[in-house]
Amino acid sequence: MRDRYNRSINYMRLSITDRCNLRCRYCMPEGLRDKLPMPALLSYEELLEIAAAAVRAGITRFKVTGGEPLVRLHAEAFIGRLKALPGVEQVTLTTNGLLLSEKLPALRAAGIDGVNISLDTLDAEKYREITGYAELARVLRGIEESVASGIPVKLNAVLQRGVNDGEWRALAELARTRPLDVRFIEMMPIGYGRKFPAVYNEELLQRFRESYSGLEWDERTHGNGPAVYIRIPGFQGTIGFISAMHGKFCGACNRIRLTSVGKLKPCLCYGESVDLMPILRDGGSSGDIERQRRLERAIREAVAGKPEAHHFEHISEITEEKEMVRIGG
């Protein structure tokens, strides 16, 4: 499926919940929001119906997100059903890692193709400061067990100036002895993220060049996202950079996003979306052919409305006002 700028759109991020078991200060601080009631969220059956329509429209790869997706009951079983849909080539997961160790056997049985784990610090006190909870050890255990299991692992770090911006090297060193990707994501001015000054990847890359010799660009495909990668001699893994602010990658964007309440977003920067919930809850059944056609048309409509580029660099042009947790990161 191609949009009006001839980009191939084959990837959907599926948010299955707005809930989370952490309270990261730039995403969902404690006390600043209410949980949506469960009936307001898409059921697993509705999510699978949308995914099937998306496959018919040309989507073949899915990322399951939240909130924290693993806090939703039976998320692993849902992932297995999603992976089993005809035409689905890949299903991966974004998680904060707290529940990863205990859920890992079920995720492997479900056929998960990879996990992205959010980790901004290796310092236990800073972790508590950033996330609101003293749970770093659980996350690190989940990372080690995932790597040992052979599942492809990516670590996503967001650096905050004056908080954890000095930890870039410690985080990068995780890739020295482990076959994983450590990726640095620029703070995006969405929701509460607008309040925090970003550490830009141009600056960070210069630090890498000054600290490590023999850096090489890694041209291999690492997944579906916009990261660019470098290889450091002697490292088993690689270092990635997702530069939302100063490395605009919109020309190669291949994704759309589905929120947990059924809003299909063509672009993270803007508030515009296509609402799929009325199609699902108008009284028809999941096996209704016309309903399936309406879902596919709506997905194609969202892709047709995908803008040429975001404008995160111009705050006044950002129209998305929701917190990231309600969008699906």
Rank of each mutant, 00 (worst) to 15 (best):
residue 67 G to E: 10
residue 68 E to Y: 08
residue 77 A to M: 06
residue 78 F to L: 13
residue 80 G to Q: 05
residue 93 L to E: 06
residue 93 L to Q: 06
residue 98 L to F: 13
residue 103 K to M: 05
residue 107 L to G: 11
residue 107 L to S: 04
residue 107 L to W: 06
residue 108 R to H: 01
residue 111 G to N: 12
residue 112 I to P: 00
residue 113 D to N: 15
residue 113 D to L: 04
residue 115 V to N: 08
residue 117 I to W: 04
residue 117 I to S: 08
residue 118 S to D: 12
residue 123 D to S: 09
residue 123 D to Y: 06
residue 124 A to V: 04
residue 125 E to R: 13
residue 126 K to L: 15
residue 128 R to K: 15
residue 128 R to H: 11
residue 129 E to A: 14
residue 131 T to I: 04
residue 132 G to V: 11
residue 132 G to P: 07
residue 135 E to Y: 13
residue 136 L to A: 07
residue 137 A to P: 04
residue 138 R to Q: 12
residue 139 V to N: 07
residue 139 V to H: 05
residue 141 R to Y: 00
residue 143 I to G: 01
residue 146 S to P: 03
residue 147 V to T: 00
residue 149 S to K: 02
residue 149 S to Y: 04
residue 151 I to P: 00
residue 152 P to R: 09
residue 154 K to R: 14
residue 155 L to I: 15
residue 156 N to L: 07
residue 157 A to P: 05
residue 165 D to Y: 07
residue 167 E to L: 01
residue 167 E to N: 07
residue 167 E to M: 02
residue 168 W to T: 03
residue 169 R to I: 14
residue 169 R to Y: 03
residue 171 L to T: 06
residue 176 R to V: 02
residue 180 L to Q: 11
residue 180 L to A: 12
residue 181 D to F: 06
residue 182 V to R: 02
residue 185 I to A: 03
residue 185 I to E: 03
residue 188 M to E: 11
residue 189 P to F: 10
residue 197 P to I: 10
residue 200 Y to P: 00
residue 200 Y to K: 02
residue 201 N to F: 06
residue 201 N to E: 04
residue 202 E to F: 02
residue 202 E to A: 13
residue 204 L to Y: 10
residue 207 R to N: 01
residue 207 R to I: 01
residue 208 F to L: 03
residue 209 R to H: 12
